[in-house]
Simulated scan of single mutants.
Amino acid sequence: MAGNWEQEKREVTFVQPVINRIEKTLDKERDIRFDILKTIGLVCIIIAHVRPENNILFDIRLFDVPLMVITSGTLYYYSANNKKISFLNYLQKRLPRLIVPVWLFLTFFFISAYLIFLLLVKPYPFSYSRIIETFLLLKGIGYVWIIRVFILVAIFANPLLNLYKLCKSENRFLALLFFIYLGYERLFIEIKHLNLPSTIITQLIDDYLFYLIPYGCLFGLGIVLPKLRFKNILFISGFFLGIFLLLATFYYRSLGHFISIQDFKYPARIYFVSYGIFMSLFAFSGVDLICCKYNLSNNNHVLLRGIVFVSSSSLWIYLWHIFFVYYWQTLVVYLPKFASHFMIAFSVITLGAIAVTYLQKEIISRIITKTRCGQNHSNLLSMLLK
């Protein structure tokens, strides 16, 4: 969902990745570690939306969005580090590749919902204001707030990379990000204490500024991640684990019970962010170790090809999972009782989203390669399909 940054890195057309996928070969230029990490993040997000009966599993997977943002930062670094990229040209290419597929999907979602609820003889559940909020990537039907996060970090990706180059040191850049984040925490507390009335300004601060700064810092961490030594990763991971444990202990002693990390997610606060950084770096270290031990970069196993497909198609898989989640939860009352079991729901939703995405790409790739209309509009189709 963070985007196929490697495709931008190699500056190839849409047709070539399609050919690679049809031939069932892995691109040796890919860093398979981040395909695995993106897949882990996406699976964790789907777990959250399916809502497992086990609250422990729900809390453990709460590093999903930080992991996706950190991974996005790394992939952006790979694609842009040795290039002179115009800020405006980058936005002209990147933002439509995020926004247009989402709007296309939402149009289909709301129209199909009208038809489905008409067949069920039920009132249409979405008001005009809720539909507009969804297209603006605000609250709406939920689920789409993460797209707003990726749009915000995409806007500031180039300035962050330039800031990193200006610092001329990973340590100085990370220290600067840490102090920026501390400033955000202080600003958040001060504004909340003021209890300002709801205005356009306060809404912009709540919905944009308070999402940009923490996730921008995570994106910045991703930019330097490939250049960090293991001991640095271990130090950063341990440092944020310490912060998380101190806060968990403080909240437990103050309130007498464990406070869920989820309560500090909207917008992201230090309790949530520290856990997200620790778990993301732990996941990265584990994946890195496995990839080195089993030489996965040169392995053409079918499972790895599947992971690459999920990673490179993460945006559309995420969008289609919204469709399956919503209607599974809506129609589960008409299904046998066992259908409400978490593993059944998770399997149907995940595999359904992947299958529909695969069929969609197969159909459009055939249109591109076998029809004149598809060839004439290949760039547009590429943008829509991601």
Rank of each mutant, 00 (worst) to 15 (best):
M1A: 08
A2I: 09
Q7T: 00
R10C: 00
T13K: 05
P17R: 04
I19P: 00
I22D: 04
K24S: 11
D27G: 03
R30Y: 12
R30D: 05
I32E: 06
R33Q: 13
F34E: 06
I36Y: 03
K38L: 04
C44Q: 07
I45M: 14
I45N: 11
N54R: 10
I56D: 07
F58I: 09
L67D: 03
T71H: 03
T74C: 09
T74Y: 12
L75I: 07
Y77R: 15
Y78I: 07
Y78W: 10
K84L: 07
I85P: 07
I85V: 15
F87H: 15
N89S: 14
N89Q: 11
Q92G: 08
L95F: 04
L98G: 05
V100F: 14
V102N: 02
L104M: 14
L104E: 05
F110P: 10
I111W: 09
I111E: 02
S112C: 03
S112K: 03
A113P: 01
L115I: 10
I116H: 05
F117T: 12
P123T: 15
P123M: 08
R130P: 00
E133R: 01
T134K: 04
F135L: 09
F135S: 01
L137C: 10
G140I: 05
I141K: 11
I147P: 06
R148G: 02
V149W: 03
F150P: 10
F150D: 05
I151W: 05
L152H: 12
A154L: 01
A157E: 03
L160Q: 09
L161T: 02
C167V: 00
N171L: 08
N171M: 04
R172V: 11
F178V: 03
F179H: 01
Y184R: 06
F188G: 02
I191A: 08
K192Q: 15
N195L: 07
P197M: 05
P197A: 05
D206T: 14
D206P: 01
D207F: 14
Y211K: 07
L212E: 02
G220S: 06
V224K: 08
K227W: 05
L228G: 09
R229V: 02
K231W: 07
K231S: 13
I233G: 09
F235R: 14
S237I: 01
L241T: 08
G242C: 13
F244N: 12
L246I: 15
A248P: 04
S254T: 15
G256F: 12
D263R: 13
K265F: 02
Y266R: 10
Y266T: 09
Y266F: 13
R269M: 11
F272L: 02
F272E: 14
S274V: 00
G276L: 08
M279Q: 11
F282L: 15
S285N: 10
L296C: 07
N300H: 15
N300G: 09
V302A: 14
L303G: 02
L304D: 13
V308D: 06
S311C: 10
S313D: 01
W316S: 09
F323I: 08
F323T: 11
W328R: 12
W328D: 01
Q329L: 07
V333Y: 13
P336D: 02
P336G: 10
F338D: 11
F346R: 09
I349V: 14
I349D: 03
I349P: 06
I354T: 02
Y358T: 05
I363H: 01
I364Q: 12
R366N: 13
I367L: 15
I368K: 12
T371L: 13
N376M: 13
N376I: 05
N379D: 10
M383H: 02
M383S: 13
K386R: 04
K386S: 13
